[in-house]
Amino acid sequence: MAPDRDTLLELYRTMTTIRHFEERGVPETGQRGMSASVHSSVGQEAVPTGVCAHLTDDDYIGSTHRGHGHCIAKGVDPKLMMAELFGRSHGPNKGKGGSMHIADMSKGMLGTNGIVAGSVPLAVGAALTSKIQRLGRVAVAFFGDGGANQGVLHECMNLASVWKLPVIFCCENNGYAESTPVEYGLSVANVADRAAGYDMPGFHVDGMDVFAVYEAAGEAVSRARAGDGPALLEARTYRYYGHTVFDNPLTYRTKEEEDHWRARDPLLTFRNHMIAQGNVITAEELDQMDEEARVLMEEAVAFADASPLPEPHEIYEDVYADYPVDMMRRGANMSV
């Protein structure tokens, strides 16, 4: 089903918000000395945007180390996310998770995850809860082309298929697992080819084209919601920057390749498409959303900087629901 005008506006707003969050938040976090564990998803905005447009706050997603886009697309407040990146107590995780663990249970966001394919079984478990309790919710497990080769993913695809769980396995294939090209690490041409091995539909779409992602995800989510079981959705995309801010990707890929993908930029593609469609959304409206996203990040950085640091005693909090604090500090010669 083609997206209506309101949906189109929302798709672009999400993409530009992700873009602005990454372009502003990643270097700002670095300036605060915490850049080691922050991964930019610039270039990949269309994938979480097109998928999460079909989800509500009651649905679940599990995310990856490159997960800011998933959070924003699932409705997590960028101001709170920025506070989390800065290690501040107003982050959704109270500053104890950071970029690789941003979670917001009120939005069905089961966490970005520092383990490759680490959140996949969590999403499958959420789908199991939904099935048992007849909640009608679906779960999306995001992973990358690196995660595509993790054993737990394959076990989970089999299990979800056997149990017919409402879960979508969504591979963001950005071409590289750290520095290793996908064509080296993958035994098949496309990750989606593996769906056949688990008796589920496989979708392979252009991940730079939010409309293609939106359409395929819509079908996969509808099937899952109807009780028809899981699907594997692969979106071919590209990360413009390195694996981390310390990585120079030109040590393993060419400038020509980067230029090729940047010319297919998802925000630019969207803009051109709107113009070609006779200005369903005007350039001015798009500019306006870009500007609002830019201003939002100004506010987010200010909000995060104003947020207090965690108090020392918080080091012991939320390890367990119930556990003697004495047991955590005993023998450690802690000062608090």
Binding site: G62, P121, V124, G125, A126, T129, V152, L159
Partner: peptide
């Protein structure tokens, strides 16, 4: 790996 992880996911969602 799948069913232990799935149980943890189910436990964290109700």
């Amino acid at each position: 790996a799948a069913f232990v992880g799935t149980a943890i996911g189910a436990a964290s969602t109700g």
